[in-house]
Design a protein around this nucleic acid. Sequence first.
DNA 1: CTGTTAGCGCGTTCAC
DNA 2: GTGAACGCGCTAACAG
Lengths: 324, 324
Amino acid sequence: MALTLMDDLRMTKKLTILDIAKMAGVGKSTVSRVLTNDPKVKPETRLKVEQIIKESGFTPSKSAQSMRGGSQKVIGIITARLDSPSENKAVSAILEVIYRHGYDAVIMESQFDTQKTNEHLEVLRKRSVDGVILFGFTECDMSEVERWNERMVVIAMDTDKVSSINYDNNGVIRQALYHLSELSLTNIAYIGVDPSDKTTGKLRLDAYLNWCEEHELPPRFATGQLDHQSAYALVDSVLDDDIEAIVCASDTLALGVAKRLQELHREDIQITGVGGNELLSFLFPNIISINPGYQLAGESAAKQLLQQLDGAVNIAHLTQPLSF
Amino acid sequence: MALTLMDDLRMTKKLTILDIAKMAGVGKSTVSRVLTNDPKVKPETRLKVEQIIKESGFTPSKSAQSMRGGSQKVIGIITARLDSPSENKAVSAILEVIYRHGYDAVIMESQFDTQKTNEHLEVLRKRSVDGVILFGFTECDMSEVERWNERMVVIAMDTDKVSSINYDNNGVIRQALYHLSELSLTNIAYIGVDPSDKTTGKLRLDAYLNWCEEHELPPRFATGQLDHQSAYALVDSVLDDDIEAIVCASDTLALGVAKRLQELHREDIQITGVGGNELLSFLFPNIISINPGYQLAGESAAKQLLQQLDGAVNIAHLTQPLSF
DNA sequence: CTGTTAGCGCGTTCAC
DNA sequence: GTGAACGCGCTAACAG
């Protein structure tokens, strides 16, 4: 009887809402009411219960709560690559936002693999997470995606099935080109990634091509993979005695280009990248890196998702009677 | 009645174990048995139930399962920095192992902050995750840690409270020094991080100092922060006309050193780092980078934890009657 | 082998 | 205001 409390302190036995109720000398439902901030509880009683809860270090079982219909307060994040600096920035921003709202995150890695992505989505569905933030890629299979509706936000991929946050692919390249034009540089080449990649590939290349057309400049470009090796290898193919600058689709590519130009002693050529990579600007201070606002994108995505989730909850409440 | 199946297909109503039971014309416990691979089920029945499950795309509620005493099959990972290349490698390795074992991961970031770490641990405890892999750091508060016992493995931190996986801090530095000695280089300086950091700081510096003593070489070193800027700034202080090589405590530092030496046109000096950083070897092919086996560490940590969890389960089963 | 029953911990009526 | 009772989806004990 009276040993209950001592017992609990002694052995870290799992406390339940019932234990708290006994200790406080009230019914379990009253404790529940306190937990759910139900106004219909005498302030006095509430205070006492809260006291006991604090003292005993009791925490309601998430499993039981979520089974009872509540949400787990968990959102899934599927990144393409865990070690991508740009995605990392976005993820950090996401985490900060959702933590602040009492959510936790389960992070997964798609490795640009459609099947893995779908497997992850499947797992997240089974775990009934509240929502998902997906870092898109071109081959991404939309069939699984649309099942999520309001409960998903994708980053860096165009789709009208779910909400999406996109970097300003066109803007970052134009910004770079504008910057170069301010420096009176006109002979500008471009090194990017294959247009089969819709965003970093096609969109950014198009931005370059459009600019060239607008300004009646002869385009000179090459595309390949998303890594520095690829860019390194492509440099020679666009190089030309009167090239004054090379615009790169990403900082990673810029790194490869810088390396090659250094070898060729063509450090007169101005390079621009995209990403705001700190390491890049340390190694090659003269490279101009446009920051596409990854952290901002992450923050936006998180806020957007949370807002949609809130909306979904409200709608659910409203339609519950109807769906009955 | 007969509409049940059509209904389910129509609206993606949450299927329960009971629905499956009805469809298969069996009791709910039989379905449960199938789910839990209970041998005591007639193969024929089992097959039929499995069939229905597949067709309906039913998935048992994790929440209910875990509430009933089962584990969530989730392990928490607390990294110091999401964007640390070395930790990333380890994390990727961890993920691969645990996915293969049907576990999922919730990843958190401590940012070398004790308080955040404890908050994360608290959250993980509330969520009753099965286990935790923690990337340690020096100021890490052990008080919260020891509560986890068998259910935690720490990486890169010495402690006897819980299992720990450590990189071979001494070994990597000695390996670098040995390599240099093979090249007949004897005038070797060291750039590391402050010894207040126990592992990357003190252990690696000690390795250097010991080597010097053993080989009767005059030590020449400087320590600072863990970033390339710091290393960059420290180079001049150890530089000397007859320095032939600089051993760095990490690849990040090596990057800073390389940058500075390049500026000074002292590319004759051999640099070594630790980390197996791919970018580093791309930018500075002549830098020797010792791979401390981060992915191996991650893999080991994950396997170790899973094994301990299995053990814990068994012990729990055995002691359950006693604790009663 | 299989159906029935009893909880797990919690939120939610429904009476008091 | 508050306590008793019910059910969420599932597993494990108990009967057949």
